[in-house]
Design a protein around this nucleic acid. Structure first.
Lengths: 82, 82
DNA sequence: CAAATATATCGACTTTTCTCGATATGTGAA
DNA sequence: TTCACATATCGAGAAAAGTCGATATATTTG
């Protein structure tokens, strides 16, 4: 999912109309993941709590997009601490 | 354990006599970890299979040391793929 | 070879994580 | 306000990971 969100345009073409400013909505990710709605929702919320993605509620949809700084921080953490 | 193995001299002073060319032996790591011998042994073998540490058998002892290239590779993998 | 020491492996149990269906919450449209 | 849709949360069962004691293997010493 994290890799998918790197290039929303290519990985979620169904969502072109809505744009990608706030990321991709849960339904699109769920369809692509092939898991149930509840599983995907919970997984996304875990990633959000961990800081790797951010969510934006727009009407009835929740959009998720990557927080690149978290990935840089993780990479640096591995370099320095591990 | 992986962090301990970054600085064997400071983290495993009991082993000075044997030297650290091949790393630290299982018994020292176990004592410091506070886990049973079997748990530590299995854990180390998992880390070895994953490529993060290397083992050298010297007599009845098995020494483990870090494989730094694996950590660099992981950091780069996160940078590029994730 | 027998005993002692160091490590590895095995089987069982416990804990955690994964995944789901059911249900609750929130939003927009009629 | 009622219905339909999108997402979140909850509780339970399944799968995986963690941990242990017992035992096996390997090595050194007497």
């Amino acid at each position: 999912m994290l890799e998918w969100l790197k290039e929303p345009e290519t990985n979620f073409p169904e969502q072109i109309t809505a744009g990608f400013e706030h990321g991709v909505c849960v339904g699109q990710i769920q369809a692509k993941a092939g898991l149930t709605q509840s599983t995907v929702s919970e997984y996304l919320s875990i990633l959000q709590r961990a800081g790797f993605i951010e969510s934006t509620r727009v009407g009835q949809w929740t959009y998720y997009k990557r927080n690149e700084s978290a990935f840089e921080a993780l990479s640096k953490l591995i370099q320095s601490n591990l």
